[in-house]
Nucleic acid binder design. Structure first.
Lengths: 238, 238
DNA sequence: TCGAACATTATGTCTATACAATAACGAACG
DNA sequence: CGTTCGTTATTGTATAGACATAATGTTCGA
């Protein structure tokens, strides 16, 4: 359990404890790097590393000449883990399977451009999928892929690998924006999930860019309260 | 625009660009600290700072003796900003108001202990609130506060400050877990939001601990698709 | 051929020192 | 009394050197 920690880790832990326990309340001025250096008998660089890390985590704020202060939590920002659907299903201990229901190549129309920031007439691939957990449909996927950004997608059948996983393996690295809403099931979703039209569904919309260029838009619709997203907030991730 | 950056910031930017543009694809081994040291003409500590930061952001993975590698994005973890409800309403440009509808002090029963990890019979304060944006109800709040953790809450009327804001100002620093689901409106919510029973609502449940002790449980229910949560993911925060 | 011992290499951590940038403080001055 | 200006405490950044640690390759021996 108590594995040998590095110096700055144990110092980090100590200071964190002081803040989390309330011994050092929000607004409290914590000792200067110089004082901490003396207190712990370490070099200033080590102390600096700790405080820099605490500041990055939002636990303290630092001002030159003034000192470092325990920050008051204004916006609790939590880390949301967006996992691959296959992984999600596997976590339930159910066999995973998916079907491609729609695969259409076309040029971006007005409606598309509202979803993802594309040039008019840019070639896009429209995809529809259903993901299954065991025998039951788990999630509906509606996706647009910019063929300007990912031309290889035009040739891909997506029989073997789902579009999400395919893109992750192909497109280098991305920034993304997620929007999470509750929506009533449309006729399609109601039939798919065997639920009443208008019943509650969780909709996760994700827009993805790579090197400033739009890559893909996807809307994942999960039935009712059978699915939930979990986000955790902890001062230091670990 | 191009303000004078520090050395490690500009190096960070360069490497990030290489990864995001795809020049260094996932799995690619990036130059060793020693090589980067030579390439940029800086000390190893500076390079180390950059790579450590990239690793913390999840953009690269580091293995002793083997080197540093561009990681393949498996779980895209996004940062979800959980704001104060008052702030959310203010962002809409609407006047904010709230009402306390329920305020009951009692001992934790079985149902409560399923929500928040309390001892049997521990004193809790049960609260119900409705938050308004303009004239329309914006959000329903159901809350349990552990009076062991926050005894002062027993005396507080919550006339002036909503429970969420009150707690943030009082309880030092917390870790929290958020669960986000879509639920059908119960009779109460349907009446409140003037919607059909069973219509889609977004439910955000938050459990909060301070110094390992449970502090509060809150369930926020937002009407239908009138509300959405936004989470962003970017390699380096900034 | 297989496994154990060893060498090598890259990361991980820490120190001591240095100078720069910033902003709070206090003293001098109008 | 208020403003300006220099002083100084504190953080921010960077360097060079050192040793620790881990894991990969390599060599040698059974």
């Amino acid at each position: 359990m108590t594995r040998p920690q590095s110096l700055h880790q144990s110092i980090l832990g100590e200071i964190e404890d002081k803040i989390l326990s309330g011994a050092w309340p929000p607004g409290h001025r914590i000792p200067s790097e110089h004082e901490l250096t003396a207190h712990y008998g370490v070099s200033r660089m080590t102390v600096n590393k700790v405080l820099t890390q605490l500041a990055a985590g939002g636990l303290i704020e630092r001002r030159r000449r003034a000192g470092s202060f325990v920050s008051r939590p204004l916006t609790q920002s939590a880390v949301l883990d967006i996992r691959d659907i296959r992984t999600e299903v596997a976590a339930l201990g159910l066999p995973y399977r998916y079907e491609v229901t729609v695969r259409r190549r076309r040029r971006a129309a007005g409606a598309d451009r509202a979803l993802i920031d594309l040039q008019a007439g840019a070639p896009v691939l429209e995809l529809g999928c259903v993901h299954f957990a065991g025998a039951r449909p788990f999630c509906r996927e509606e996706r647009l892929i910019s063929l300007d950004a990912v031309p290889e997608a035009a040739e891909e059948r997506f029989d073997e690998v789902a579009p999400g996983a395919w893109l992750v393996g192909r497109v280098p690295w991305t920034s993304a924006e997620h929007r999470i809403r509750a929506v009533g099931a449309d006729r399609d979703a109601a039939a798919l999930f065997s639920m009443a039209e208008g019943a509650a569904c969780l909709a996760v919309e994700r827009r993805t860019w790579s090197a400033e260029r739009p890559v893909t838009f996807v809307r994942l619709t999960y039935p009712g309260d059978a699915h939930e997203l979990v986000a955790r907030f902890a001062p230091t991730q670990g």
